[in-house]
Design a protein around this nucleic acid. Sequence first.
DNA 1: GGGCTGAATTGAATCGTCTAAATCGTCGCG
DNA 2: CGCGACGATTTAGACGATTCAATTCAGCCC
Lengths: 337, 337
Amino acid sequence: MATPSIKEVAHRAGVSVGTVSNVLNRPSIVAPATRKRVQDSIKALGFVRNEAARHLRAGRSRTVGLVVLDVANPFFTDLAEGAEALAYENDTVVMVCNSKTDPVREGHHLDQLEQQRVYGVLITPFDSADPQLRALVARGTPVVLVDRAADRGMCSVSVDDQLGGRLAGTHLIESGHRRIAFIGGPLSMQQVADRQAGITTVVEAADHVHLQIFEVDVMGVQHGRAVGEQIAALPRATRPTAAFCANDLLALGFLQAMAATRLRVPQDMAIVGYDDIGFAAAAAVPLSSVRQPAGLLGRTAMELLQEEVEAGDRHRHRQVIFQPDLMVRQSSDLTRR
Amino acid sequence: MATPSIKEVAHRAGVSVGTVSNVLNRPSIVAPATRKRVQDSIKALGFVRNEAARHLRAGRSRTVGLVVLDVANPFFTDLAEGAEALAYENDTVVMVCNSKTDPVREGHHLDQLEQQRVYGVLITPFDSADPQLRALVARGTPVVLVDRAADRGMCSVSVDDQLGGRLAGTHLIESGHRRIAFIGGPLSMQQVADRQAGITTVVEAADHVHLQIFEVDVMGVQHGRAVGEQIAALPRATRPTAAFCANDLLALGFLQAMAATRLRVPQDMAIVGYDDIGFAAAAAVPLSSVRQPAGLLGRTAMELLQEEVEAGDRHRHRQVIFQPDLMVRQSSDLTRR
DNA sequence: GGGCTGAATTGAATCGTCTAAATCGTCGCG
DNA sequence: CGCGACGATTTAGACGATTCAATTCAGCCC
């Protein structure tokens, strides 16, 4: 009943456990006849390798932890898929953990992953200066920051968020908007702060353009809707005419609020989102969005991780930065459709 | 540098490894002074438990595998969240695996999970009669089918998909539609077949109503759009006036195709989706959809799994079935808005 | 003061796999 | 015929945490 071990396989095949192990790991050094006998025995008993034992022996697991801010956000599932594709090629397994933008949950996942002695961790951190994260690295777990630039202490893969903010800002200003809302949060998150800094740069460089910041706790559809309703309630004369949302979920929620309050998009309110998730193009009004190469981010992060583990001692941390693109669609373009 | 083991902790605290283990697992039986000394030693050395060793000794892992058909589908992320919430309460970890509706990938994940000797597996199977899945169960891994009714051989948590199909069909027929399209696939998947069977039942019971089946390989946005374009190209006189899509991603893609081909929804084409994911209500035209209690499915599945593991030998498999609800929105209702 | 009790702690075996070193045969060659 | 060499296989520890039987020891009673 209980799963058989290598020992039982060996007994049934009339060989020692060492030989069975050799059949599993270096089949070429085992005599063909013996190998066959062992393989038959494995099949007959339904033997399945015990990863825990291998892991204990090897001292290192074949699982990579991926901690993301929000699994429900397609941006992160795309990212995960990119990472997993490469992991698959290297006989590694990806374990996706959802921190939900909550440092406590994030910490819990890091604890679990460290206890599992994972091969490494890819993480979109809530706060990259988190002492727990530093400690994890200090104790020797390879960590790659994702969607977030690191200082020299770690590898990272990110997208130039300031540029993303500038792209969105420039586009809106050139479209004639003078009162612009920025929606995102928490502002303590570097990605959000950078996107805001980017748009702030171009707003300040332009004349008579005003930027208003709306901070949210979590970047989900609900919160976008709430801010949208709040903004819709402002008097027309002072209400922003454009909104730059720090991710697409916020933007979709914001868009819903516009529909509910009968504000027309883009005539009364232009919207630009961030991430360019698949649903953005399929929204009520197709959503303009700053595109990030999610899959590539994930894949590259995994590459850096493997590089780090293989290079071992004298590995030099690298920070890879990608460029975002602005996808202009109807939600910010009066001339479309 | 390398993570210290219990042995080093013991040495530094001047006690035996057994005592350290006791501090970790049964602190109450250790004398307060000793306990303190050990805890200090743990902190000073940065000791982290090795899960692999615990697992090997215990013979059972604290990880639950969850294999879903499509992580990018919010229905499954909601489901995962429900499962994880309960897992968290029981100091268990959920490992989400994405089969992408591909039996090969599914098999690969099952292999990995079995090698890890997981606590149990929750799976939305491609095919519940899959011999590999049966074998997994036969070798002793507890498995709960999710979103899919099982025969007596396993526990399962599902939703009455035939009822879901009947709800959608009845609604469309009562709205006056006589030519209805069903879009979904592969039809070999029980969920899809049941939804189709449901709508077929009510179509056949009605007079002069015709149902046309469009099978797809994968239920994603792309495929929905493709079928939508195909249907839009049909001559008006024979073209269906309503579409029932076997999930919301298909429906969203289908909706995009309608927009692209200038067919009005719901005037020219009514649409009903399935799952009622968050994006459904936020679509270009808010989407009618058959709602499934995703989070509850996940949570209940985890409950059944824990029940099965705890009951041990004389556990009786249970099949829990939930009822779906039809959420009528603008995409299938001319009277709205 | 001998014997007993019970709390605190120790020591050793165990889980399943891997690997380096040791052993066993067999064969070829001098 | 004996020795060396080599290929195939076995043996014997790790790896780190857990557990339980065994041990130690202080305290207490008679």
